[in-house]
Amino acid sequence: MIFTKEIIKAQFIKRPNRFQAYVKIGEDEVMVHVPNTGRCKEILVEGCTVILRYEPGENRKTKYDLIAAYKNDKLINIDSQVPNKVIDEALKNKKIENLRSYNVIEREKTYGNSRFDFRLTDDKGKQYFLEVKGATLEESGVVMFPDAPTERGRKHIMELVDAKNNNNGAGVLFLIQMDNVKYFTPNNEKDPEFSKALKYAAEHGVEVMAYSCEVDENSITLKNKISIIL
């Protein structure tokens, strides 16, 4: 996935709330939009280099979205709209090995009380519900999800179990928005209920997948399948 809009670098100053941050562009302090409601405290550290995407608009308060940041030498994409776009591209290009048989790809489809990111259908009419979770929390090469409690996330996982029990395919894919990581694991410390639900789902036939991304300042692309420790 190549970013078609203008991309510039800036220096991170502070993030007073979930949606806004202040950065330094040249000598100017500028307010920007943060398209991620997660905490990202270990990424958005004062003085770090961040990547901005130019997003002009009459109804916008800011001209830029803060889409990525350098954590030491590692570039991490934090745009919460990116994971579904990356996976959509990967599904169409048959890059996810166990989902290659599905040729019909639909976005944002309802099942039960949840709306899943994808509904896939193969040539025989078999359906597969896929939920995508963007993962940005990394410590010493270990990636975890979530970075804060998510009741909505746990609900999605249990709905996937229900979909599987009703003769559908079902899976959750954690898109790691960075490269060069060791493995993925649920964040039991931050959200033990989500971790418990994910383990339960895996034991009941829901596929749990994790993929890293090749990330640079102008693009992000699905890269490697990553080991999972539940």
Rank of each mutant, 00 (worst) to 15 (best):
Ile67Asn: 00
Val215Pro: 01
Phe145Gln: 01
Ile25Lys: 11
Asn218Glu: 11
Met178Leu: 14
Asn224Met: 02
Ile7Leu: 12
Phe3Met: 10
Glu27Arg: 12
Ser101Leu: 08
Glu6Leu: 11
Lys124Asn: 10
Glu89Pro: 06
Gln127Lys: 15
Gly125Trp: 02
Asp147Phe: 03
Thr49Tyr: 02
Phe145Thr: 01
His156Val: 12
Glu27Asn: 15
Lys85Thr: 06
Cys40Ser: 09
Lys196Phe: 13
Gln11Cys: 02
Glu29Gly: 00
Ile7Met: 15
Lys92Ser: 12
Arg15Gln: 05
Pro35Arg: 10
Lys9Phe: 09
Glu189His: 10
Gly125Phe: 00
Thr136Gly: 10
Val161Arg: 10
Lys92Val: 00
Ser80Ala: 15
Asn166Asp: 10
Arg154Ile: 01
Cys213Ile: 02
Leu173Ala: 10
Glu131Tyr: 02
Lys182Ser: 14
Leu130Tyr: 05
Ile7Tyr: 03
Ile13Tyr: 12
Val161Trp: 05
Lys199Cys: 04
Lys5Phe: 03
Asn17Ile: 00
Val50Thr: 13
His156Glu: 15
Lys199Val: 09
Glu27Pro: 02
Arg60Pro: 02
Pro149Leu: 08
Ile220Ala: 07
Thr62Lys: 06
Tyr183Gln: 07
Val32Ser: 06
Val206Met: 05
Val172Ile: 15
Gly205Lys: 10
Asp65Asn: 14
Thr49Cys: 08
Asn167Leu: 12
Thr62Pro: 07
Val172Glu: 06
Phe194Gly: 05
Leu66His: 04
Lys223Pro: 04
Tyr183Ile: 04
Met1Tyr: 10
Leu130Cys: 06
Ile96Arg: 06
Lys95Tyr: 00
Pro186Tyr: 04
His156Phe: 13
Val161Thr: 05
Glu108Phe: 07
Val45Asn: 03
Phe118Gly: 13
Asn17Gln: 02
Val143Thr: 05
Arg107Ile: 03
Arg53Trp: 03
Pro149His: 09
Glu29Pro: 00
Asn188Gln: 11
Glu139Thr: 12
Thr62Phe: 11
Phe184His: 05
Lys71Thr: 10
